[in-house]
Amino acid sequence: MTHYAFHFDGTRCTGCKTCEMACKDYKDLGLGVAYRKVYEVTLGETKKADDGTFASTCVSYPLSLACNHCENPACVKVCPTGAMHQDADTGLVSVDADKCIGCGYCHMACPYNAPKVDREKGHSVKCDGCKERVAAGEKPVCVEACPARALDFGPVDAMSKLGEQADIAPLPAKSYTSPNLYVKPSKDAKPAGDASAKVVNPLEVM
């Protein structure tokens, strides 16, 4: 039994969104649906001084995020039909389309904005960790597409050596779901739960 995790290196990510596009291409996703998204996180302020000059503490950093295949997934916990389920061997969380009623409960509960109800398909959709690729010994397509090597994927033991567990704003405290995401933050990044860091591209990612 090997549970898998993603690694995100905030010191390498440029926010180019190649990961997002590679996923959309591989999964053949239409407009308005993306399983991996890049959040543009901004904080700080710009003030005008008495002498007319401006000083700014504004910083921005990208965060590439998909389903974190949590150890204690909120989406699985609330799902009324068992459609949202976790593979016992790999820990990967996916949707059984034949069971899903499309109630959106998983979407409401997930604090990582991973599942969405696709009303055309009639069920929830989300990142499944490219489970068929993982079964074939490959990494998820988003990881392999990243030109800056800011993403990685592998057994939890290996990924946990590369960073702290989901400790970056705008993510919530890891205690809610124990996400399988290990992050090396950029120097400007704030820790998880710091509400001063705002998502400034909500129309794109939400």
Partner: peptide, 11 residues
């Protein structure tokens, strides 16, 4: 509210 009410018996 449901996208697939046909599966509702599974709730």
């Amino acid at each position: 509210h449901l996208a697939s009410p046909a599966n509702a018996f599974g709730v």
